[in-house]
Each structure stands twice: as structure tokens, then as C-alpha cells.
Design a protein around this nucleic acid. Sequence first.
DNA 1: CCCAATAATTCCGTTTATCGGAATTTTTTA
DNA 2: TAAAAAATTCCGATAAACGGAATTATTGGG
Lengths: 260, 260
Amino acid sequence: MTNLLAPKGSIARAARVLDVLSLAPDGADLTEIVAQSKFSKTTTFRVLASLREVNYVFQDPSTRIYRLGSKLAEMARNAEQVNVSAIAERGMARLAEMSEDTVFLSVPEGASSICVNRKVGAFPIRTLTLDKGDRRPLGVGAGSLALFCSLSEAQRATVCRVNKNWLAEYGATEESLASEYEFFQVNGYARNRGGVVRGMSAIGVPVITASGRLVAALAIGAIDERMKQERIEELILPGLKREARRLADRLNAMEKEQNK
Amino acid sequence: MTNLLAPKGSIARAARVLDVLSLAPDGADLTEIVAQSKFSKTTTFRVLASLREVNYVFQDPSTRIYRLGSKLAEMARNAEQVNVSAIAERGMARLAEMSEDTVFLSVPEGASSICVNRKVGAFPIRTLTLDKGDRRPLGVGAGSLALFCSLSEAQRATVCRVNKNWLAEYGATEESLASEYEFFQVNGYARNRGGVVRGMSAIGVPVITASGRLVAALAIGAIDERMKQERIEELILPGLKREARRLADRLNAMEKEQNK
DNA sequence: CCCAATAATTCCGTTTATCGGAATTTTTTA
DNA sequence: TAAAAAATTCCGATAAACGGAATTATTGGG
């Protein structure tokens, strides 16, 4: 009999094993992986052997401990999100320090927005609406909304259609998004007024390279008291725009470099 | 009959499909992937379906084009090499600009050293000994040698034994490595005098965090004329040491952050 | 707007690679 | 040095992956 919780197919199994490893920065031995993955020892072993073959995992010959391998890292370098997140690190840190609030970085994937990085500022009341890895429909949340508003009319329409039910879960409709789009056009940033959490607001701006590619959105979230118009205009927005531009410039430089 | 060139096992097949995708920054459609991977359409399709299930690939619903997915990116963020490479970006750029020569970043993996990043300086004669992704036995090349020399005596011995034949391909022996180790102890950096390419030299230093973890090596390579003792002592070495320390400090800060 | 051509997806009988329990070997610990 | 634990290999049973063919969806003229 096959394990009820077991994913179907070797690829799903491999993914689970890799998951376990990615949560173990210092690696894990076979028994540990068996325990975490819930697969039989034999299966786990064979999956690991296959993954080792393609350099997705590496086994330290002396300790027999398994770690994520070089191939994975190499491939990841090609997966843009990683780069965006890594490159944004310093800028986000600057924003978090400057504003003392929480800074989010999101990237678009199809009709969704994925939070790929987060920096927490010094202010004691924190607004942790999004975790790293969280996925939301485009248009829900300040960063996600900034991404949505940077799409073409046709794309926005598609997103609304595709995500209709998902958007409804967050109380968003095509109309509400259209109204936020207007706001974005006029003010140059997207806002999120207590949509998900009451008493909390956020504003977001898109990150667009010189070649016109929409790569990410930067957003800052805080309790309403810290999101008055004056503070937004004098502190938050200039900061976001500055870092968004920097990030775009650096990504652009890397793009050029790649073509050499 | 199964394809002669086909890798064995679903995991190897999945890896090949991911390889194809990672070489296609703008994604690829099914036929393209079929062509590149040499698998049957059905197999390719099914592999992609499995990969999609675990978010390793993402298929744009409107264009049906496949790309590397969010999960891969998320996982990669945990694979240290990526971070090291991304974090080192600026420092390497500074070194490349300052020295005008070529800057290499290598990380250790078992008994090998993997080049994970490279920055080319302005000087017209370039010494591109290593590509991103290249793997060498520990001890071959300045960066790799710096890693080797930062190991314990027992580890060095193991490396020599394990890599014996591989080292021989590069004309290196236990004795030659021992002699370079002496040099490293005395001078605080590793050197590579035309070992691989005649007329070219390089020097490297290790990057070690405050907690004592050996994470990488930074190296600079140039033609011999630009690697005279004076230039090394006045320009190259101080630069390398400074950036190595900075990098170590940043990695250390991130390590602490992780434990929160 | 319809039809042809191309691409994507599903179906299905066959075969093979994967499965897990048990046996074996290696490594660690007492 | 023996006992215990962990890693690895073996093997028969079987589920899962295979690919060719059929089906469905999409695209690109005319």
C-alpha cells in the first residue's frame, strides 16, 4: 500500500526531498531525510542517488551528509526572481531602516504576485501581511496592485477574468481594481487601505527596467497612523521611487552584461 | 526501445527539461522543449505537468509558454552559493574596476571548487581561465588554492588522496600543493603561476566568516606583467583582503539574521 | 469567417523503472 | 572488540512511466 500523504510520481517525491534539504541549511543525513519526507528508506535513498547524479544534491563524502547541490544554484542564477530578490537586498534594508516599517518585494508570475523578500523595520508594531513565498492574485496588496497597474489594459482585463473568484476572496472586484488603477495613474503609486488587515496601510511602486520589462514591485506597509499623506509624500514615496529606480538600473546593467 | 541518449530515471529526465528551460530566459513552448530535450512529446508533456505541480515550472496560461517556476527560486534562495554570488556582486565589481583585471569567486563543494561568479575588468588582454559553473579540484587555480589552504591538515590530505588523478591532469601533486600551502602560510594569499595558462598569474584569498566557516574565495587574474610583486602588495592584495572581509561580514550578519 | 495546418493534450496497451521489505555491508558507539 | 545504528544493495511484485495514435485546441492564411 502506498503512503496516503505521499505525492504522486517520482518528480513530486524528488521535490519533497529537495524541500527537506532546503530547510536544512547545514544539510541532513539519510535518516533525517527519511524522517522528514516520510518515504521509505529505500525510496529516499534512490531519490537522493538520482538527484546526486544530476548535481541537484551533493553528498559530503566524509560525513555522508546531503546538501543542495551546485546544479541547483547554477540554475537558480537563471531564474530571475532569485536575482531580483538578492539584488534588492540592500535597497530594501535601506528602506526598512529609513522608514522603520516593513518592506516587501513582489514579483509577478502569470496572474499572481509572489512575495520574494521582506525586511522588517525597527518600529515595534509590525504589519506582517505577507510572508516570503506567499502568492496573491495580482491586485491584492500594495505591491501586487502596483504590478497590476503596470500591465496593459488587455492584461488587466485578463487578470480580472482569470482571478475573479480568487479576487473575491479578498473582497476585490474588477470595479474596485479599476478605481485603484485610476488612483495609480494620478498619483504614481498603488495603495492598499486596510484591504486585508484593518488599521494597516501600504503603498507600492513598480520596478520596470529601461527595456520596459516589469520585474517586481517594492512596497512599504505600516499601521495607519504612520501612513498619513505627509509622511507618504515626504518620506515613503521618495524612498520607494529611489530604490525602485536603483533596482531597475542594476537589473538593466545585468541584462546588458548577459548579452555579451 | 528507449532513446540511447536518454538519461535514466524520471528525475534525470526532469533535470534535463529544467536544463532546457534554464537556458531559455524567455521560456519555451512544448515543441521547443521536445526538440531540445529529445524526449517524446508525451513524456515531455508529462514531465512538465509534474514539474508544474510542484511549481518548478510555470506555464503562462495565455501563451502556454513554460518558464522556471517560483518554487525553484524559493529553494535556490536557501542554497548558499547563490547568495554568496549575489552578495559578492558589488565587491567584485569594485575589484574589477580598481584592478582592471579579471575577478573570480569560487565556492568549495566537497573536494572541488566551483566558480560561481566572474567580473571582467577594463584591461584589454583578458585572462578567462574559469567560466561560471566550472569545477576544478581544490588546489588548482588561485581561488581554489586559497580554499585548499584554508582546510585543516586532515582535510587537505583527504583532498589530495581523493583528487589524485584529477589533480594530475593539471600537473599538481601532493608535494606541489604542500609547497603552495607553505607560501600561503607565509604570505597570507594563494598564488597560481601559469599553472593552467602560460604567461598568466592569479592570486586568491579565502572568505571566512566570523564563525569560522569557509564560504568562498576571491581571486584576481591577469597577465604576468600586471602581477609584479609591487602591484600585488600595493593594489591587488589589499583590495582582495578588503573585499573578502566585507563579504565575510555581510554573510555573518545574514547568518545571525537567519537565527532570529 | 471558415478551413487547413500546427500545436497541445488525452488515451491506452505495453513495458520498464520504481517500490518497499529484507539482507548485507559499513560506520559509529559503548 | 562487540553491539548497535546507519547506509547501501538485492529482489520479486507492481504501480507508474513509456510512446504511438487519436483527439482536441489554437493559429494563420484565404
